[in-house]
């Protein structure tokens, strides 16, 4: 059949075209296809997006600033939902709490704190876990053994206990004058540190698989530096499961923050998160002022649920076996 030797042939080099834009790629991808075909995921996406947007824009779109004493009227306390305060012109969509703060507005500000702490803590856990996991899986040997035993020990305690411990120790180390302002960072540190092990384990496993593959060997033959191999070759290939755990981890971190705040060891009362709001609200549940607890709790559930559903979908969409 064709038998043309290539020796005499002239090659006209053609510059390969540029890859298509990111948006074009995203819309063409199987991911988008699977997203569009999952109504639950679409609803979850919009719910999460709406909650996040509201949280981000709270200072501009909230009807009241619940932390500005000038606009507060203590006498408006316990105003039920959908009614006007007895001693002011303020109208409360979700009622007012014991201090006369608009519950709707406190939720908007509270989600802001919750999301910030959750996202930062997850990011911290992710960076730490992925870094240690890569180092562990690529090098093996003693480094691997040490990192993984620490992870094993940590995973045998409930995350919330670890966070409490770290929180307590950090509190002890920080001078009292700075405790208030540092509280949120201590919280992020505590939650993040209690969650890195999951990431590290997953990344280590995936790295050990990828390390054996010939594309890594090809790079090693060229003498590419191990750090660059990890970063450019292996990291993109282990990122799939990290995104999944990261998303589900975000929901967990939000809940963990709420739990800590509920226990009273979280953010200071001047910067209430959803968890703080729930703690405040539960004191009044039995005296009939249900709205102070109910609305923050529903928001927390919606937030955690929608983020979790997104994580589930991501896991299925990235799993080649389920396609």
């Amino acid at each position: 059949m064709t038998n043309d030797p290539m020796t005499t042939r002239q090659i006209e080099p053609v510059i390969p075209p540029r890859p298509p834009g990111l948006l074009r790629q995203a819309l063409d991808s199987d991911m988008f296809y699977s997203w569009r075909n999952s109504p639950v995921t679409i609803v979850a996406t919009f719910t999460a997006a709406a909650l996040i947007l509201v949280a981000l824009l709270a200072p501009w779109i909230a009807p009241y600033n619940p932390f500005n004493p000038a606009t507060l009227n203590l006498m408006d306390g316990f105003t039920p939902p959908m009614s006007e305060g007895a001693f002011s012109d303020n109208w409360f969509l979700m009622g007012a709490d014991h201090q006369g703060r608009d519950v709707f507005s406190t939720i908007m500000y509270g989600s802001r704190v919750s999301l910030f702490v959750g996202a930062m803590a997850t990011l911290f856990a992710m960076t730490l876990g992925v870094g240690l996991g890569l180092a562990s899986g690529y090098n093996g040997g003693t480094i691997d053994a040490v990192i993984m035993r620490i992870a094993d020990i940590q995973l045998s305690f409930p995350a919330i206990l670890i966070a409490l411990l770290i929180f307590g120790v950090a509190r002890g180390l920080i001078p009292p004058s700075q405790q208030e302002s540092m509280a949120i960072w201590v919280l992020i540190f505590a939650i993040g540190l209690s969650n890195w092990a999951q990431f590290a384990r997953t990344v280590r496993g995936a790295t050990m698989v990828e390390r054996q593959k010939d594309y890594v060997a090809a790079a090693r033959i060229m003498g590419v530096h191990p750090a660059l191999i990890l970063l450019r070759h292996i990291l993109p290939n282990v990122l799939g499961p990290v995104l999944v755990i990261g998303t589900i981890g975000l929901a967990l971190a939000i809940i963990e923050e709420a739990t800590l705040s509920f226990l009273g060891v979280g953010v200071p009362p001047t910067q209430p998160s959803l968890g703080t709001l729930i703690r405040i609200g539960q004191q009044y549940l039995f005296s009939g002022e249900w709205w102070i607890l109910f609305f923050p709790a529903v928001t927390l559930v919606l937030l955690a649920l929608s983020v979790n559903l997104l994580g589930d979908w991501l896991r299925d969409a990235l799993n080649p076996k389920l396609r």
């Binding site: 593959k213 594309y215 070759h233």
Partner: peptide, 9 residues
């Protein structure tokens, strides 16, 4: 390498 799928990232 033997398996071109594994030898290409």
């Amino acid at each position: 390498f033997q398996d071109p799928l594994a030898s290409l990232n």
